[in-house]
Amino acid sequence: MNVPAAWYLVLAALLFGVGCFGFLTRRSAIIMFMCIELMLNAVNLTFVSFARTLSDVGGQVSVFFVMVVAAAEVTVGLGIVVAVFRRRTSTSVDELSELKG
């Protein structure tokens, strides 16, 4: 008997938790991006597990779209990081506090 899909769901939940914690605590914008990728991958794993459990290919198609959007997001996000780094010579999000009242 194969490993039940619920195990993969738990694994995805843990992966999402790790990514979320990293996003909330790390300071470097690039590391925060990597943590976003971890969270997106956790959700992808969930989609694939449900696609298998419910025997519906729609979950896998969703993962396909999530990957495309993640690629676009990383492109723009890293562009912003480069643009900010030009002005501030740092990628620490703490130092971007000019809008603070």
Binding site: A5, Y8, I30, F33, N41, N44, V48, A71, V81
Partner: peptide, 30 residues
């Protein structure tokens, strides 16, 4: 995990797009 759950295509895309493109982009920026 994708491979183990019958998502062969997505496993390939995961490696090509994520490891091959996105992480390389990260490394390039770093």
């Amino acid at each position: 995990g994708f491979l183990a759950q019958q998502a062969d295509f997505l496993a390939a895309v995961e490696i090509i797009v994520y490891a091959g493109a996105i992480v390389v982009l990260f490394l390039f920026v770093i």
